[in-house]
Amino acid sequence: MTDDRDKVEFAPAALDRTAPFYVAGHSGLAGSAVWRALEGAGFTRLVGRRSSELDLRDRDAVLTFMREARPRYVVLAAAKVGGILANSTYPVDFLSENLRIQTNVMDAALEVGVERLVFLGSSCIYPKFAEQPIREDSLLTGLLEPTNDAYAIAKIAGIMQVQAVRRQYGLPWISAMPTNLYGPNDNFSPMGSHVLPALIRRYDEAVRSGAETVTNWGSGNPRREFMHADDLAAAILHLMEHYDGPEHVNVGTGSDVTIREIAEAIAAAVGFTGATEWDTSKPDGTPQKLLDVTKLRQSGWEATIDLPEGLRRTIDWYQSRGEAVRG
């Protein structure tokens, strides 16, 4: 990679359905949804590698792979992710591994001339007490939530790398910041899961074991926005074909619920009729995290999968997989 290459200018337009398209993290929650959406949209040369086949933390391996695959488009959905427990217990891992994954993939993509790339971040990039709903320009205006600040810093660095590529080389790379995602291929493990899959597992196991009570972390009062991964995937393809700007774009539904409300909905959906207790000695995290999706809507896209429907699909998927997804 050299610094003296000419800048190349592109305008948003329909993507070539026959061009090589690499989805980094294609077996995860977001990446698998992107893969399904691209298949449904007629893309015929999708490229994906599982972590057992390609370690994205290995710079040389990533460069070799990208030189061979030479994708025209990339969605960078690969990341080390986890809930409050994992993030607060292993901050070094979340910072270091995500920085390496992002830098390796984007440096290699630049070297082989990837035309369009979407970097997926997270709504945790915003300050803990950002004004709600959170606008894109709230970034770096306050202190981060300390339970996941290391992960957030890595994602902020990814946004900066995309902006740097745009400034230096003129490529129409963009960043999308999804809200809390859920759906097929989510992480349901006790240590690594986010709140919604953790609740699904907890209430489902309570029903299976005949438990009379379920204990959840915190007060249940924080508000969270939840988006089905298939909606995210549709938004990503839309943005790749309709948005070309340096500022990241929030991707969400524009509405939120309390953790208590989502717990009650999941309990009802899996048939749990016992009592729910709340362990207030455990952290709540950010009080509210609702994204302002004005920019996304102005581009011509809105979410279509409502929470009841999304929960039904996700619970059906989880229960049909049995022990294979319980970790």
Rank of each mutant, 00 (worst) to 15 (best):
M1I: 15
T2E: 13
D6E: 11
E9L: 15
F10Q: 05
A13C: 06
L15S: 05
L15A: 10
D16S: 11
R17C: 13
A19F: 06
P20Q: 11
F21R: 03
F21D: 03
Y22P: 15
V23N: 02
G28P: 09
S32W: 12
R36H: 13
A37I: 08
G40Q: 10
R45L: 05
L46V: 13
R49Y: 10
R49I: 09
R50Y: 06
R57N: 01
D58L: 03
R59N: 10
D60E: 11
L63A: 08
E68D: 04
E68S: 03
P71V: 10
Y73L: 01
V74C: 09
V75A: 08
A78S: 10
K80S: 07
L85P: 00
N87E: 11
N87Q: 13
T89Q: 14
V92E: 15
D93H: 06
E97C: 08
R100S: 09
T103N: 07
V105S: 00
V105Q: 00
V105K: 00
V105F: 00
M106R: 09
A108K: 12
E111M: 15
V112K: 07
G113T: 12
L117H: 11
C124T: 12
I125L: 07
A130E: 12
A130S: 15
E131G: 05
I134H: 08
R135K: 13
E136M: 06
E136I: 11
D137W: 12
S138M: 09
L140M: 08
L143V: 05
L144Y: 06
P146C: 07
T147M: 14
A154T: 08
K155M: 12
I156N: 05
A157I: 02
A157H: 10
Q163F: 03
G170P: 00
P172M: 10
S175G: 02
A176D: 01
M177Y: 14
L181V: 07
Y182F: 11
P184M: 01
P184E: 02
D186N: 14
V195K: 15
L196V: 08
I200R: 01
R202D: 15
Y203G: 04
E205P: 00
A206I: 11
S209K: 11
A211N: 15
T213F: 13
N216L: 15
N216A: 09
G218D: 09
P222I: 09
R223M: 15
R223L: 14
R224P: 03
E225H: 01
M227Y: 00
A229P: 12
D230F: 00
D231N: 01
L232G: 12
A234Q: 13
A235M: 10
D244Y: 06
D244L: 05
D244F: 04
H248R: 07
N250Y: 02
T253E: 07
T253I: 02
G254D: 03
S255D: 14
D256V: 04
R260W: 06
E261V: 10
I266H: 02
A267Y: 04
V270C: 04
G271S: 13
G271N: 13
F272D: 08
F272G: 07
G274E: 01
W278P: 07
T280F: 08
S281V: 06
G285L: 01
G285I: 03
L290K: 05
V293K: 03
V293Y: 04
V293D: 02
L296R: 04
G300Q: 06
W301R: 07
E302A: 15
E302C: 12
E302M: 14
I305L: 05
Q319N: 14
S320A: 15
G322H: 03
E323T: 05
